[in-house]
Design a protein around this nucleic acid. Structure first.
Length: 266
DNA sequence: AATGGGACCTGCGCGC
DNA sequence: TGCGCGCAGGTCCCAT
């Protein structure tokens, strides 16, 4: 499940390999992932344009094109960007003038490709909360003050704060020793600070290790991300807590698998 | 307003 | 062995 660290890893790798390349062919093997405009127009819009810049906002990737338009890519859960690709097993592939190919794979077809005139006008972007790296602890505390929602559900809400998905929400709460079902506004100042630190540290370490390869995520090169080794709670139901010898418990929150240690997360 | 559930999908792992 | 079922989770949408 690509979250901020995985998308950031992909962004950095793509910058190293496809920047300034000119698209000469677009292969559409499954048009369902193309959300706008319609397939023919989408393809026409990409012919003979170069990729000038790559931007990431939350979990969204944005390619600035030489035409002035933008190609946006949301990987959702099973999206992959692979370079060099083969153009065959993908949902959509982009062929460049040097005969190399960038593959967009997506086994579950949840991913979304768009070409837009202005990415900042996308509803998803306009509603997106700040990234953890763009605010300080004081701001984070203020943001939590009026929220009664369960803390884990809140930090996964992209409108509240952007970039955190299920995996890193679980890991950050473990670091802060906070029970995922606590109402956000009941956390003490100290706990809010610990959580903010937990979020930032988890995300930056995950970026350092090039993401977590659970499910389908891989780097652009196809190699797995190494951070799985360092997970403390995610997908460890029934196993021993690394901190206190309790047992990791799994519950469902907001329909998502939630892992925590009941004896040291209060 | 906040919350919960379903929908979108496919592939995998489990139990019988 | 093989089949059917439940589950995985990012985001949107709808009902309560």
């Amino acid at each position: 499940m690509p979250e901020l660290p995985e998308v950031e890893t992909i962004k950095r790798e793509l910058e190293a390999v496809i920047l300034d390349k000119r698209i000469t062919a677009v292969i559409v093997n499954n048009a369902r992932v193309i959300r706008e405009p319609k397939k023919e127009k989408f393809v026409a819009n990409l012919k003979n344009v170069a990729i000038k810049k790559i931007i990431r906002k939350g979990k969204l990737l944005i390619f600035e094109l030489s035409s002035g338009k933008f190609l946006t890519i949301h990987l959702k859960m099973t999206g992959q960007l692979i370079y060099p690709g083969d153009g065959k097993t993908s949902r959509v592939s982009f062929g460049f003038s040097d005969d190399t190919i960038l593959d967009f794979n997506d086994s579950r077809i949840f991913g979304e490709l768009r070409i837009v005139d202005d990415w900042q006008k996308l509803k998803f972007i306009k509603e997106l909360g700040p990234e953890p790296f763009d605010i300080d602890a004081e701001k984070f505390k203020e943001m939590l003050a009026s929220k009664k929602t369960k803390i884990k559900v809140l930090i996964m809400d992209q409108k509240f704060i952007s970039g955190i998905g299920n995996l890193y929400a679980n890991e950050a709460l473990f670091r802060a020793r906070i029970h995922p079902e606590r109402p956000a506004n009941h956390l003490s100042d100290k706990e809010k600070e610990l959580l903010f630190k937990g979020i930032k540290n988890t995300l930056s370490e995950a970026i350092q290790y090039k993401g977590s390869s659970v499910d389908q995520y891989v780097q652009v090169s196809g190699r797995p991300g190494e951070y799985v080794k360092y997970h403390k709670v995610y997908d460890r139901e029934g196993e021993k807590c690394f901190r206190c010898k309790g047992r990791i418990k799994r519950i469902s929150l907001g329909g998502r698998g939630t892992y925590f240690c009941p004896s040291c997360q209060k």
